[in-house]
Amino acid sequence: MNTMTTPQLLDALHAHYIKPEDRLSQAGAGAVFLTEVTAPGSNRRADAVYLGLWQSRGAGDIDVCELKTSRSDWRRELDNPAKAEAWWPYSSRFWVVAPSTDVVPAEEVPEGWGLMIPNPRGRRFKTVVKPAVREPKLTMNLLLTLLKNTETTRVNALRTQSMRLQQEHHNREQQLRRELSSKNDPEIKHRLDALAQLEKDLGFQIGSSSWKQQVDPALAGRAIADYIRNADAQDKALDDIGYQATSLERMAQRLTEAAAELRAIPASKKTA
Rank of each mutant, 00 (worst) to 15 (best):
R172I: 10
T145D: 00
Y227A: 15
L147W: 10
E187G: 10
Q175Y: 10
D201E: 11
K200Q: 09
Q174W: 06
E173R: 14
A194V: 04
D216S: 10
R229W: 07
R121E: 08
N156F: 04
K137R: 09
L147H: 12
A132Y: 01
A225C: 10
F204I: 06
Q214Y: 05
V128G: 01
K183M: 15
N119P: 03
M163S: 07
E187L: 15
R177N: 11
S210A: 10
Q213I: 08
Q214G: 03
R121V: 04
T139E: 00
T127Q: 02
D226I: 08
H190V: 04
P217A: 12
R164P: 00
A237V: 04
K236P: 01
Q175S: 15
K126M: 02
P186D: 09
L143M: 15
Q161V: 06
A231G: 07
L180C: 11
A237D: 07
K130N: 07
N156Q: 13
L147T: 14
L180W: 11
A225R: 13
R172H: 13
D235I: 06
L192T: 04
Q161A: 15
V128E: 00
L158D: 05
N149D: 13
Q197V: 06
L219A: 15
L195F: 02
N156D: 12
E151H: 11
S210W: 02
T153P: 01
L158S: 07
G203S: 06
T152K: 12
L147Q: 13
G207E: 01
T127G: 01
D226H: 12
N230F: 08
A132S: 09
V215E: 02
Q214F: 04
L144W: 14
Q205C: 06
M163D: 08
L165R: 10
A231V: 07
E187F: 10
D216W: 08
A231T: 11
M140T: 14
D193Y: 03
S162W: 04
Q234F: 06
E135Y: 02
T153Q: 06
D226L: 15
K189V: 02
A194Y: 03
S181Y: 04
L165M: 10
Q214N: 09
R123H: 03
Y227H: 14
Y227L: 15
V215P: 00
Q197M: 06
K236L: 09
E187M: 11
S181N: 12
Q197K: 08
A194C: 04
T150H: 05
A194P: 02
E168V: 12
P136M: 00
L165Y: 05
A196G: 03
R222D: 14
T150G: 15
Q174S: 12
H169E: 11
R134C: 01
S208E: 08
V215R: 06
E168T: 11
Q166G: 07
N141K: 15
P120W: 03
Q161P: 02
Q234D: 08
Q161Y: 09
L219P: 01
V129Y: 00
I188Y: 06
S210E: 03
R154P: 01
S181C: 14
P120D: 06
S162A: 14
Q175L: 15
V155Y: 03
R124N: 09
Q161C: 07
I228F: 13
L143F: 12
T160L: 09
R159N: 08
H190K: 13
N119D: 14
N171W: 07
G207P: 00
K137H: 05
R154D: 05
F125K: 00
Q205H: 09
V155E: 04
P186V: 11
Y227G: 13
L219N: 14
A231F: 08
L198I: 09
